[in-house]
Amino acid sequence: MEKRVTFKGWLLPFLLIAPQIIISGVFFFYPAGQAIWQSLFIPDPFGLSMRYVGLGNFEYLLSDPYYRQSFVTTALFSTLVTLVSMVPALFLAVLADRLLRGAGAYRTLLIWPYAVAPAVAGVLWLFMFNTRVGVISWYLGKLGYDWNHVLNGGEAMGLVVVASSWGRISYNFLFFFAALQAVPRSVIEAAAIDGARFWRRFFTIVLPLLSPTTFFLLVVNIVYAFFETFGVIHTITSGGPQQSTTILVYKVFSDGFVGQDLGSSAAQSVILLVVVGLLTVVQFKVIEKRVHY
């Protein structure tokens, strides 16, 4: 069954993959190589001198209990962001898929939050939950709940998770919605005739057929949670209270761009690169086996 196209010579195939290779080289291999190189040094901020320390930066990081703790924080944060951004998205997509009228309007409204920049989203949520002037924290106070994410680590984590996930729900919604439209009606109708109710049809037919999309979104969202959320954390908590929202990528950002400790920052990005690489391998080896294409 397998179809194979073979090229004569090497020039054409090379030209065809060249753009991809050049882009990967410029935007991935070159900076990643530089990070690995820099991680072996303690440079001064102005780039006037560099002091070779071998694996000293890694030793320094891994012997720091606060750094090790931030792996746990990152795992918790990423899991929560992935869940909170995917489950509601799927739910909304299923509902929007069943709409007969006004589907376009709902879709547009649901996609809107994706257009809000992460740092702006952070500020919006911060205002709503501001301990003293926030609308939501004020109502919570009326209900007798004293919201204080400035000192309560759990609340701070909840707030950054929600702020990071909010815009992603739109993104995930788009993919789920498109995938739902591609589920063949005939299969669902056959199940309906056999007497399967809506949720039964959803779990036994629709969800398995959505699995390629779900898997794709799982990978993409975890990468998002690992790499792109430092803006939100910077605006809302700056990693606090104590270190309860200091995830790995936020520490890379703050040590490098606030603290000017470029050696440590480079070493941290190398560690992060390895962690995410391993995670992706695991995802493809283990989870992808359960995906039906």
Binding site: L151, S238, G239, G240, P241, Q242, S254, V258, G259, Q260
Partner: peptide
């Protein structure tokens, strides 16, 4: 590295 040290102090005071 005083900016970072202040960050540490903030964490511990919290």
């Amino acid at each position: 590295s005083f900016d970072q040290i202040r960050g540490i102090i903030d964490e511990e005071l919290e």
